[in-house]
Design a protein around this nucleic acid. Structure first.
Length: 450
RNA sequence: GACCCUAUGGUCUAGCGGUUAGGACACCUCCCUUUCACGGAGGUAGCCCGGGUUCGAUUCCCGGUAGGGUCGCCA
């Protein structure tokens, strides 16, 4: 029998990075085994559910490329879905729950108490055979010793998580429950419920949680807890996926950067680590840089335009070849696309803003004649390409009897306003003679006053 | 409070009854270089503590400590 796994998020309005990794591990397991990945929306809490909240989840998974074989097609709970084990929204499965509860009631496995319906939980310890953690004998806590029974249906008629989660897994034919370790203790309840329904429980695999960089638990409010924040910061989904794979799972052969195909090939439950992992933003950034460096030009352009738009820069004011050439000089130099407007904004602005510290250092009077000479050299160039520009700058430096750096630094500042950026010769070529001469002229003017 | 899980450099990890404890990120130094980044060469830094078992424990067992989780008419 092919495995059937599921990701069953609650639409809270955001997708937790840990939830994204849970989805990823489920997806990887399904793809590795040739099984089925089901997406189910646990929207039993009507008060805080909305179609928008579901869309956040769907869009997050889509962004990561985690396609589901069964589940909703839109955020609309009553809308279309794919798969024959639906509905895939819990809000649409009320009859299923009622029927199951009545069965438990009639068999004396559940009872009414103060308007709620409670489950008669066993008092014996429950053995959880976990594929990641190993065998766990879950004993009763002191409070459970007093009353091990738990509520299945609230007095307002709403079924609770433990009940619906088990019923859905049962009815959707889920064979492997891969979820966060925060559910490990509760698994005893779930196993007892499966027994009560007269079916064997699925296999369980509890994966460790993701903690903040400082080791504290990652909650909703923490920086980087929301998957959307990575999209907004201009991360590439393949970088996020790759990084997430490495958190709590290891290919065991010292590999870091791996393609999704390789990961699917290698991924399996036994290699999942048992301890929590801290989120290392720096390492994610490094992977991001690795992927950003080899990005296809068209995709790079698309993401860059998006980043510039977000920053309030309209690149459409410039010819497409100019924008693409500009981006080409930035390739491999930046990591997240959120950095791009600051890094390459000088290409798209009419007036460069200078770094004040650098102005003090480079826009000094003795540089004025030097830049003027360079300006003249540029003006006289027959061809305004990077190679000619480089040659001209070096010749000018030689004629002036200074190192090339003496010319390079003030020129870069004049053209970009900053001390670092793309290759100077290439950015000069892209900016074009007119802009370059204009910017040098302006800088020369400032040096005169300084 | 009870119950459960976990413990290798700062971080992610490999590994193992005998290893010079390996890799990656970060950090430091140097090289390359028009800046930055990349790349190259080095470097600092680790088996939580205490008992056992054993000829020998980072590795196995127990205890402690620490971190995390759960015990809801939240999911």
């Amino acid at each position: 029998m092919k495995p059937r796994v599921r990701f069953a998020p609650s639409p809270t309005g955001y997708l937790h990075i840990g939830g994204a990794r849970t989805a990823l591990f489920n997806w990887l397991f399904a793809r590795h085994t040739g099984g089925t990945f089901v997406l189910r929306i646990e929207d039993t809490d009507a008060a805080r559910n909305s179609q928008e909240a579901v869309d956040v989840i769907l869009n997050g998974l889509r962004w990561l490329g985690l396609d589901w074989d069964e589940g909703p097609l839109t955020g609309d709970a009553t809308g279309p879905s794919k798969g024959d084990r639906g509905p895939y929204f819990q809000s649409q499965r009320k009859e299923n729950y009622q029927r199951r509860v009545e069965a438990l009631l009639s068999r004396g496995l559940a009872y009414e108490h103060e308007g709620a319906i409670k489950f008669k939980m066993q008092r014996e310890p429950v053995l959880i055979k976990d594929l990641v953690v190993g065998d766990v004998l879950r004993k009763l806590t002191d409070r459970e010793e007093i009353d091990p029974d738990f509520v299945l249906v609230r007095s307002d008629g709403q079924p609770v998580f433990h009940l619906v989660n088990v019923i859905d897994d049962l009815e959707m034919g889920i064979t492997h429950v891969i979820r966060g370790e925060d559910h490990l203790s509760n698994t005893a309840k779930h196993i007892a419920l499966f027994q009560a329904f007269g079916v064997p429980a699925p296999h369980y695999a509890h994966i460790p949680l993701i903690l903040n960089g400082d080791g504290s638990k990652m909650s909703k409010r923490d920086q980087g807890a929301s998957l959307t924040s990575y999209l907004d910061t201009g991360f590439l989904p393949e970088a996020v996926i790759n990084y997430l794979c490495l958190l709590g799972w290891s290919p065991k052969d010292n590999r870091e950067k791996m393609s999704l195909a390789e990961t699917i090939e290698l991924f399996d439950l036994p290699q999942i680590l048992r301890h929590n992992a801290r989120f290392d933003y720096e390492k994610l950034l490094w992977l991001q840089g690795e992927y950003a460096r080899e990005l296809a030009p068209d995709r790079c352009y698309e993401l860059a335009v998006h980043a510039f738009t977000r920053a309030g820069v309209d690149t459409n004011r410039h010819p497409l070849p100019y924008v693409k050439a500009a981006l080409d000089t930035c390739k491999g130099k930046f990591k997240t696309f959120a950095e791009l407007p600051a890094y390459a904004g000088f290409y798209f602005t009419d007036t460069v803003e200078y770094d004040p510290e650098a102005v003090k250092k480079d826009f000094v009077p003795e540089n004025k004649p030097r830049l003027e000479k360079l300006r003249d050299a540029f003006t006289a160039l027959p061809a305004f390409d990077a190679a000619s520009i480089e040659a001209a700058l070096k010749e000018t430096a030689k004629a002036l009897g200074v190192k090339v750096g003496v010319l390079v630094h003030p020129t870069r500042l004049a053209l970009t306003g900053k001390t670092s950026g793309p290759s100077l010769y290439h950015l000069i070529e892209v900016l074009g003679r007119e802009r370059v001469l204009g910017r040098i002229e302006r800088a020369v003017g400032i040096m005169a006053i300084t």
